[in-house]
Amino acid sequence: MNFSNKKINQSILLISIDHPRLDASSTPDFKEYFSNVVKSQFSKVVLDLSSVKFMDSSGLGALIFCLKNMVVNGEIVIVGAQANVLGLFTLTRMDRLFTHYGELSDVLAEIA
């Protein structure tokens, strides 16, 4: 209920988290939602984090879990992360695993 998605093309899905926190309270729902909508159909997910005000390491863990369960060579990129959310990615070097883009248009220009 706090998530929505939009198909960008055959292989790319946009998922938006419309919830202020991505932490232990919301990650089980997120993981379930992710696997239900992505299945093995999409090899690339663009994750819109612009509404997420706070994320902790369980949020990070959920993203890694989702990535692991995607097809081989699957990719998750993130878009619109707020400063304190992005800080968590850079501190743990997860920004190398999940490329960050400022705006959705930047991602689409590059990957779609």
């Binding site: 902790d56 390491s57 304190n84 800080g87 968590l88 850079t90 501190l91």
Partner: peptide, 28 residues
């Protein structure tokens, strides 16, 4: 860890612009 442009003071991680988070909240 890749710590860039930050001050770690006690429980806090403060960036050079003055924004901060409590490390405990990040659970790292």
């Amino acid at each position: 860890v890749n710590l860039k442009d930050k001050v770690i003071f006690g429980e806090y991680c403060i960036d050079h612009g003055g924004e901060y988070v409590e490390l405990q909240n990040w659970q790292v």
